[in-house]
């Protein structure tokens, strides 16, 4: 039948078993509220798979550590924005067992945007933090190697092309 020759030998492992993490979507929000009640500014639940949690910038390390180490979420990427409120960063975490995308949202200072780096916890945030540093001029404290990633030698210091001007 279909793919007979290769399939019958069964060299590929096909398992649908997925790791079961006992933390459900809602539970994780409850836990966050419980543990970090003073750090959380706002929780917006768009639907059960998209939740935005606005936090104080100082507590990013603790919350990220909780999400990554205890709850086992995967860091997807971080998006920086330049808005009238200042510099905003959305840290996107994914919970693969439920399909939840948890956005940890911080708003940074307009004049001197800086936040703790997550790269000492997991390598996945290394490049994106360098990139945000290049493009928006956001400073990441304790980053292991905050040099330019893509634009090496392409523009002068202190000029950040993704910044906007608001009147």
């Amino acid at each position: 039948m279909q793919g007979a020759r290769y399939k019958t030998k069964e060299r590929g492992t096909r398992n649908e078993k997925r790791e079961t993490r006992n933390i459900d979507t809602m539970v994780i929000i409850e836990k966050l509220k419980e543990n970090f009640s003073s750090d959380i500014l706002e929780i917006v639940t768009k639907n059960e798979k998209r939740i935005i949690v606005t936090i104080k910038p100082d507590s990013i390390i603790n919350i990220a550590e909780y999400l990554y180490k205890t709850a086992g979420l995967r860091f997807i990427i971080a998006s920086a924005l330049h808005t009238k409120k200042g510099f905003e960063i959305h840290y996107h975490f994914s919970m693969d067992s439920t399909g939840l995308v948890l956005n940890i949202h911080v708003i940074l200072d307009k004049e001197n945007p800086q936040i703790e780096s997550l790269s000492n916890m997991f390598n996945a945030s290394n490049w994106i933090e360098r990139e945000m540093h290049e493009l928006f001029g956001i400073n990441f404290l304790n980053h292991p190697n905050q040099e330019k990633l893509i634009s090496d030698g392409n523009w002068a210091e202190g000029v950040y092309p993704y910044r906007k001007e608001f009147k």
Binding site: E131, E134, L135, I150, S151, G153, N154, W155, A156, V159, Y160, P161, Y162, R163, K164, E165
Partner: peptide, 20 residues
């Protein structure tokens, strides 16, 4: 992987202009 921005000055070759 790369979708980023570079600004540069055409005449002098120095990269000084930003997008704004």
């Amino acid at each position: 992987t790369e979708r980023m921005a570079v600004a540069y000055d055409i005449n002098s070759g120095k990269r000084i202009m930003n997008a704004n």
